[in-house]
Design a protein around this nucleic acid. Sequence first.
DNA 1: AGGTAAATAATAAAAATTATCCTTTAGAAA
DNA 2: TTTCTAAAGGATAATTTTTATTATTTACCT
Lengths: 129, 129
Amino acid sequence: MLREHNLKVTPQRLGILSILEDTGHISIEELFTFIRKDFSSISIATLYKNINFMLEVNILKEVKIPNSKSKYEISKDEHSHMVCRKCQKLEDITLCLDGVIEHASEKSGYSFDENALVLSGVCPQCQLA
Amino acid sequence: MLREHNLKVTPQRLGILSILEDTGHISIEELFTFIRKDFSSISIATLYKNINFMLEVNILKEVKIPNSKSKYEISKDEHSHMVCRKCQKLEDITLCLDGVIEHASEKSGYSFDENALVLSGVCPQCQLA
DNA sequence: AGGTAAATAATAAAAATTATCCTTTAGAAA
DNA sequence: TTTCTAAAGGATAATTTTTATTATTTACCT
Ligand SMILES: [Mn+2]
Ligand SMILES: [Mn+2]
Ligand SMILES: [Zn+2]
Ligand SMILES: [Zn+2]
């Protein structure tokens, strides 16, 4: 992935990507905490720079979540997100939005090529309590 | 609105709300620029505090937009947003998401009570150029 | 009109992000 | 392999964004 976008393959970058693979979605500060276990002297600037690079070339995606900090994920097929207001967990869900987007396009005249949907509620586990 | 939530009605707050009424959606920095025309000595801290107060009591809503800063709006009926990547304009659109949300709920077990959808693309005006 | 809790302004502090600059290194070329 | 160099990392400063503190002012209740 890195090579495809002319980014050098450094241990730090591999470490960042590895954590992203494991966690799925993670905030900057969490990521910094994790990465320091493997690279105790990594600079926070290095982390920010790399996140930004990878966002620019679309290796990563930022997920903006209502009432909390952004999380980052490795780009994959288009999908939406669900966030639990009790336990804060963030999960993927694949939905077909074609109909609504088509409708929105007709109604507004916009031509859309991206969408970001975050559904907020309570996850199954937290509903029990 | 303010009184309903036990917030004192101050000229500064009225000014902020008036700008929000006029602009529809606005970022913090834009809002600060505007409000200073009417209240040249207003403190940025006052602005942040008031925005946060009004968010807490749901007088305002924050709209998180991919690749740009959040904008704020006066709460109104549930609706989605469209952002033009050429001219950056942000517009409302009312869509029926009941179907997809119902489907998401069944598929995941979540119970949802809020959604945030932002569609990105090119607005009709910018398509001409 | 007077009293008081809440709001404002000014400012400091904290948190988040970016810039600078020197050192190190990945990867290409010899 | 070794050498070379642009790119990347680390340390740290600087900016930017947001929140906290505190003294002063004010909305609003009595
Ligand atoms: Mn995801
Ligand atoms: Mn809106
Ligand atoms: Zn939960
Ligand atoms: Zn446009």
